[in-house]
Design a protein around this nucleic acid. Structure first.
Length: 274
DNA sequence: AGCTGGTCCTGATGGC
DNA sequence: TGCCATCAGGACCAGC
């Protein structure tokens, strides 16, 4: 579930509880996430202070003075703030224990990850998982001009290129469909065929779609903390995603579903053009 | 049984 | 031929 907005809302939700706090210990009940949690990770950070939280794409960063924990929520991960006395549930794999609260990771499918980047290895953005990521969609480097240039020579569909993450990060399967709907671009359009004007439209659609979703999630932050972790996930009312067969909210034509690269794509046959 | 929000890896393909 | 970027598919896992 977590795409960029959910990760950003998670970051904002946990930040007031962990930034500036000293990590007193970690409880790793199951190391077998996407990659094994490094055995030395807890001792590297215990009794170190979280200087700040950060985010790169869908990766959440816990920065310590001696390095950074890199957390990915995968398909089913969630973080929440709980009381130390709250017993862990099934799939609650990792606790970060602070003086006042516990930060707890739940991840049933275990596609998530918790990695360590030591400060001695240089800036965390040079970590192998982060080094080749595309630009941040909500930062100034992302605009129509960039998107246009970055899609030249890409024969794959624009939907596929958005999901690939090497051009722009953070756009997952839901928001890819939603952004393409807002930009009125058919998901099967070859990326290289986007005109400069349509690249402008798409870049703006991606920004506004993600910002709207963050705003919607931000309004549920109170529920996010201390809940079962799922309340922090939200969907802005989708225009197309999951609405196969239902009428387009703009023109009334039926929304269609197709499969691209084993992922479902939803679009309006009438509003979205090649 | 088949579907589900992510993304890494491998091996194949194509352009220069 | 070799190198590189890109592409397509499979893999990981649990819950509904």
């Amino acid at each position: 579930m977590p795409e960029l907005p959910e990760v950003e809302v998670t970051r904002r939700g946990i930040a007031p509880h962990v930034e500036g706090e000293v990590l007193r210990g970690m409880v790793v009940r199951n190391r077998q996430l996407r990659w094994p949690v490094p055995a030395e990770l807890p001792e590297r950070c215990t009794n170190f202070r979280v200087s700040q939280t950060g985010r790169r794409g869908k990766y959440l960063l816990l920065q310590f003075d001696n390095g950074t924990q890199i957390i990915h929520l995968g398909m089913s991960g969630s973080l929440r703030i709980v009381e130390a006395s709250e017993p862990p549930g099934l799939h609650d794999h990792i606790d970060w224990v602070f003086d006042a609260i516990v930060l707890r990771l739940r991840d049933p499918r275990r596609f998530g990850a918790v990695l360590w980047h030591d400060a001695s290895a240089g800036p965390v953005l040079q970590h192998p998982r982060l080094a080749s990521l595309g630009v941040e969609p909500l930062e100034s480097g992302f605009d129509g001009r960039y998107l246009y240039a970055a899609t030249r020579g890409r024969t794959a569909s624009i939907k596929h290129v958005l999901l690939a993450g090497d051009v722009v990060v953070g756009v997952g399967n839901i928001y890819a469909s939603e952004s393409l709907f807002r930009a009125r671009i058919h998901p099967l359009t070859p990326a290289s065929r986007l005109s400069a004007a349509r690249a402008d439209r798409l870049a703006e659609a991606i920004r506004s779609t993600l910002l709207d979703a963050i705003a919607a999630g931000g309004s549920s932050l109170r529920d996010f903390i201390g809940s079962d972790g799922t309340a922090g996930y939200f969907q802005v009312r989708c225009n197309v995603y999951g609405r196969d067969g239902q009428p387009c909210l703009v023109c009334g034509s039926p929304i269609r579903r197709l499969v691209q690269g084993q992922r479902a794509t939803f679009y309006c046959v009438h509003c979205q053009k090649y």
